[in-house]
Design a protein around this nucleic acid. Structure first.
Lengths: 269, 269
DNA sequence: TGCAACTGCGTACGTCGTACGTAGATTCGG
DNA sequence: CCGAATCTACGTACGACGTACGCAGTTGCA
């Protein structure tokens, strides 16, 4: 498991659910529902935060809510739709500060950091397809807010959308990589250092520097610099700088004076 | 399902398997294995290509190979390791042309396109964590080859690694988005146009242009330009240009004379 | 030729999501 | 105010899945 995809069932039903348009207009006979959709979704988020998305089984969630497993299907058509609701709920709850700067780059940087913070707070988000979730109120509000970071930067509408997609895709990509690393570490039950120590001999025998000169030089340098094969924090900082520079170029501006840029320097081998 | 994660078991065992170092040195009594690891992996790839990663069930694969489900565990420790092997096999089989240009940008662009082609040919790759696969021969050869695209561009070793990770992450991100779209379309059993037609009324009622002015303006423009909410092809072209421009800035070069760049232009509302 | 090692495989267990049917609670029509 | 219509909550059960475990049979070596 660990995956998602949305509404195998009626997509319109999902949309109604997202916008909380479930029709309570009709007769309303029978027993009153003891719970609300919001309670269910909120509890699911709690569970996912605490134990990961895989732990959000219909049984486990029902147990936490004190109802029978099948009782969940009263509120939610299925697991996929539940996850859609969780995602949109999180989006809806994101802080939307009034942008205080006229610099689009700073605004967009803030957007990237906000998104990254969400992935950090809810690690299970990396296991969800955030690219194409059904259009809920949270998603829409988020889109509106984030687009405004690019308003007035001289981009056409289509480019504005593409630029935002680009930035968000980058952040998600980083988050997923970070999550993969975390999962790998948990599974292997050993720290990066231990793993390296255990497998270095085998790897050294395989990957001889004569056949793979560049890989061993660069790989070693990167490994030593980061203390691991991959450093999420560094990858994010580095990548975000590139992303923003790339967009700067689109707007015909030169990248800003190098702030934290390390001097390019060849490591001797 | 639809997910991955690697070797819950002994990681060293996985490494030996990747490098095909399974010890046939010892006694070798008992019946000879009727199959080889390579056959198993190749068949699994065929199956995944044809019906997706979810279809690569231990049972289904065993059936295709004409053995009992549990017989697979003779060759492979488990499903996760099988997927690792599939991935590394694909990497090993990637074409590695001799770079014919001295222009790092063209070389890196080629790397991006090659990777994209792999994702296109094997759509199930988007469901696999390609960020941190165990270090196999294919992965290593790929790393070596792709790093060479950045050699001589004036980057330090650590930056070289970061730049490659950045580019590959971008390609994977695009591939995943494209795959998500495809899956959504398949599931909903209707074309994008039909979906839009069915849900436009509800969405229009919800997302009124007064509350979400930017979103509706930009969203409409993008939707009309692409004929859908998201256009993978456009996202890739646009993003790759930004990625390369961003790296250009790092190297202190100006981005190249605009080739296919559309003129930034505000769409009137 | 016997024996011990090692392979291939069958059975079975514990998960999961969820289809389906039933019983009971609730409100509406008269 | 009461029967009937109707909706909710829930229990049982099914068919997937990955894979632990143990047995039987085949093979190489002494």
């Amino acid at each position: 498991m660990a995956s998602h995809r949305s509404s195998a069932g009626d997509p319109t039903r999902t949309l109604e659910l997202l916008w909380r348009e479930a029709a309570p207009l009709k007769g309303q006979r029978g027993p009153k529902p003891g719970l609300t959709v919001d309670t269910v979704v909120a509890t699911a988020v709690e569970l996912a935060d605490a134990e990961g998305l895989d732990a959000v089984t219909m049984r486990a969630l029902a147990g936490k809510l004190g109802i029978a497993p099948m009782g969940l299907y009263t509120y939610v058509p299925g697991r996929a739709e539940l996850i859609d609701l969780m995602l949109d709920g999180l989006y809806a709850g994101m802080a939307r500060r009034k942008p205080k700067t006229r610099d689009w780059r700073a605004r967009l940087e803030a957007v990237a950091h906000d998104n990254r913070a969400l992935f950090t707070k809810h690690a299970w988000l990396a296991d969800v397809s955030t690219t194409r979730p059904p259009l809920g109120p949270g998603q829409l509000a988020k889109y509106e807010y984030e687009l405004q970071a690019l308003e007035g930067a001289g981009l056409g509408d289509v480019e504005q959308d593409a630029a935002l997609t680009f930035v968000l895709g980058f952040v998600e990509s980083c988050a997923r990589a970070a999550s993969d690393m975390r999962a790998a570490r948990l599974e292997s039950q050993m720290s990066d250092a231990t793993w390296w120590q255990a497998n270095a001999p085998l790897l050294a025998r395989m990957s001889d520097p004569e056949r793979y000169p560049t890989a061993s030089r660069v790989g070693t340098a990167a490994g030593q610099a980061h203390g691991a094969a991959y450093n999420p924090e560094h990858a994010f900082r580095f990548g975000l700088e590139r992303v923003l520079d790339g967009l700067s170029a689109l707007m015909g501006q030169a990248p800003p004076p190098k702030r934290s840029r390390t001097v390019a320097r060849k490591t001797a081998r």
